[in-house]
């Protein structure tokens, strides 16, 4: 998440609805390894499916304001492996998640202690592909304490770690996050460092970590800058995500960036690695990702139910996937 700096009236006007970029990536499959679907609408799921997103990872994060009770954490984690996973499947997208105590809320130590106690209930569940998103925000002592404890948890569970790097004081925060991960004996190949930019990418790659880039309008990376990164560093250990959430963000950031890469002459193989395969390779180390599931989930039947609930509301006809017929 972030603040939306530098917004002008012009930026807030509806953009062009020209979907022709989709033509350039027709047939490609995408994996968005960081997107907060709980904050998004069903329209987003449909648009993502139509643009070729076949699977995604929803990291546990904060909800825009601090929670005050451990019970709300429990219900949230439980929705990530329950209702949201089901909802996603109803749009033909395989849903994975990472589970963790985010850095902001780690600052409420009394509550953080209780959250740490319930984390083991969730990190071992099927489809949980990592501990995340964890790391630093303000870079306080409390954040460091729970970051370290969760690194140990990830190590014990044999799960990859998804690190959120801070918005403020990013460069030092990124370096410090990696130092601490190494100090705890984690293999950098098991650690995905997220929200990189031009200033952090080199060190992350040089030290053997995965470098994730968030294409998020105005505050993080733009996708033209992303193309430049690929041109300079190639596609090894690099992945692109949207981190779309309740802010002004774009759940189609991954397919759009792939399209732009294609336009700017980046090879299909590099695009495939950065927008699909690398995320699977990195988070697949959890043993929880099976690409065959992506196809299975494509056979959508929206009339299915989850605990008696359905995504369909009174009188709605199910949208069965028949060669991309878009119901609007």
């Amino acid at each position: 998440m972030c603040c939306n700096g530098n917004l002008t009236e012009k930026d807030l006007q509806p953009g062009s609805n020209d979907g022709s970029y989709l033509e350039t990536i027709r047939g490609m499959r995408f994996f968005d390894p960081h997107v907060h679907m709980s904050s998004r609408t069903t329209d987003d799921y449909q648009a993502m499916a139509d643009a070729g997103v076949v699977a995604l990872i929803e990291p546990a994060f904060w909800l825009g304001q601090p929670r005050t009770e451990v019970g709300t954490f429990k219900d949230y984690y439980s929705s990530l492996v329950g209702w949201e996973r089901f909802r996603s499947s109803q749009f033909g997208i395989k849903h994975y998640c990472t589970i963790g105590l985010n850095s902001r809320e780690a600052n409420n130590e009394a509550l953080a202690e209780q959250v740490m106690e319930i984390l083991p209930l969730f990190v071992y569940k099927e489809g949980v592909v990592g501990v995340g998103e964890i790391g630093f925000d303000d870079q306080t002592a409390a954040e460091e304490k729970y970051y370290r404890l969760q690194l140990e948890l990830a190590k014990e569970a044999g799960l990859p770690v998804q690190i959120h790097t801070p918005h403020r004081d990013k460069k030092k925060g990124t370096t410090r996050s990696m130092d601490i991960a190494l100090e705890h004996g984690l293999d950098p190949y098991m650690v995905i460092v997220d929200h990189n930019n031009e200033e952090t990418v080199k060190e992350v790659l040089d030290r053997g970590f995965w470098a994730a880039f968030t294409i998020y309008p105005f505050t993080k990376m733009g996708n033209e800058r992303m193309v430049e990164i690929i041109l300079q560093y190639g596609s090894e250990r690099i992945m692109v995500n949207s981190a779309a959430d309740w802010g002004i963000s774009d759940p189609l950031a991954v397919p759009k960036t792939a399209s732009l890469m294609k336009q700017r002459g980046i090879s299909d193989e590099d695009i495939r690695l950065a927008t699909y395969q690398n995320a699977i390779t990195a988070f697949g180390q959890s043993g929880q990702i099976d690409e065959a599931d992506f196809t299975m989930v494509r056979d959508i039947d929206q009339s299915q139910k989850f605990s008696g609930n359905t995504v369909l509301r009174g009188g709605q006809a199910p949208r069965i996937d028949k060669n991309d017929i878009i119901i609007k």
Binding site: R168, D169, K170, K172, E199, G222, R225
Partner: peptide
């Protein structure tokens, strides 16, 4: 020091 890092980040992103 942090603000100096921040300036470099903004310049790299072509932002003011």
């Amino acid at each position: 020091d942090t603000l100096s890092d921040f300036a470099h980040e903004r310049w790299a992103a072509s932002r003011p």
